[in-house]
Design a protein around this nucleic acid. Structure first.
Lengths: 209, 209
DNA sequence: TCGCATAGATAGTTCTACTATCCGATACTG
DNA sequence: CAGTATCGGATAGTAGAACTATCTATGCGA
């Protein structure tokens, strides 16, 4: 198929496909002439994956590129692929991530991790983002919300265990790789949407009674 | 205090404070002369809240403005404030949210909501975003990840119930309002960070054994 | 053969979140 | 009380992200 058909079948404009090609998110088609190339099903699937990561998962184009590069790297262990996916879904650091209040919040997060026995890389960006959130709650005088911390941790543990099981249940290693990425990115979108729905329900119940 | 001190104490540049004033995120100080105004503690707290929403919660400035307007509206019921906060943390719709596959995914989400007995507004954007995620998983051939759906729903339910309880436990209505907003926005940041940490742990355990 | 599609390059657009500059007025400093 | 710094308010400019449009040679299909 040529670029026009790829565009039609994926719903992505030709100009945008060219942009993704330039940016290295989509591999080039196989050239048949100086200004002709054909694309296959793999390109169509890749394009759908890109749109899912960007539109549903909220990844930046740069983040999606890194994830896709990791997916394409056959030598990369699953565990490291997970790290790449995590980095891509994680928002950049808050600007003031270094003062005393932040260090205190960081100690609190590390204590939680230690108590749970979670094996976590000390430099993980997720540790930093959790710290940002704890610090912000304290800075805003909302420390009582930290009473939810263990509920969050329980939920995170259950969800993560279930997700890992689902992905590792797959026979084909290539499908495991896809599963790690889609599970991380789309799973986050799904879980946060469901949390809001459940909040809506809880709020409706409390208001009524 | 004048704008320079407000800037120094909040860590936000004078230019940015002026920008927030223009954008209506921060109320004007009380003028003492044609070109002088003083700001109080409320301004400092508001500024910290803005930075938490934007930097930690990832809200856009426009989203933060809407949330803050809702916070300032004393007549707005808590339940509706929650809706405003939800809208602000929810990313815009995926561009192709309307085809047959999307309708099928939507039915699936509605079935889940029905089975759980969740009381949800039919037009809630969270329903749409959950649908986007389910649709994307199916479109990518990752339907087995939907096996995690009930785990997600369980987790969402537990977390939401705990959050609502924490907020409603407050005596002061004004603090409830703050709690709804910070709980929704910062809670999301915290939960997603913890999920990634738990995934890291689960992955480390599986790899080792 | 003629008109439309294509590859590749380059330039332009839109939006967001700031950042910088300017002006006239006011406040501190010695 | 002169001089300098800071202020509020207005306006304009900037940087980055994610496209989008245009251009120039080709090629391809009827």
């Amino acid at each position: 198929m040529r670029i026009g058909e790829l565009s039609g079948r994926s719903g992505v404009s030709v100009a945008t496909i060219k942009y993704y090609l330039r940016e290295g998110l989509l591999p080039a088609g196989t050239a048949t002439a100086a200004n002709q190339a054909v694309y296959g099903d793999a390109h169509l699937r890749r394009l759908r994956l890109i749109r899912a990561l960007v539109d549903v998962g909220g990844l930046s184009v740069a983040g999606a590129r890194e994830v896709l590069a990791a997916v394409d790297d056959d030598d990369l262990p699953l565990h490291e692929l997970l790290g790449v996916a995590h980095k891509a879904v994680t928002r950049p650091a808050a600007p003031d991530s270094d003062d005393a209040a932040w260090q205190a919040a960081r100690a609190e997060v590390e204590e939680l991790v230690r108590r749970r026995g979670w094996r976590v890389e000390p430099g993980s960006p997720s540790l930093d983002r959790a710290t940002d959130a704890v610090r912000a709650m304290r800075a805003l005088g909302q420390e009582d919300l930290l009473g939810c911390l263990s509920t969050y941790a329980d939920a995170a543990e259950q969800v993560a265990a279930r997700e890992l099981d689902a992905v590792l249940a797959r026979a084909d290693p290539a499908r495991m790789v896809e599963g790690v990425v889609t599970g991380t990115v789309l799973g986050e979108a799904l879980l946060t949407a469901l949390r809001l729905l459940a909040q809506q329900d809880a709020s409706a119940r409390r208001a009524q009674s």
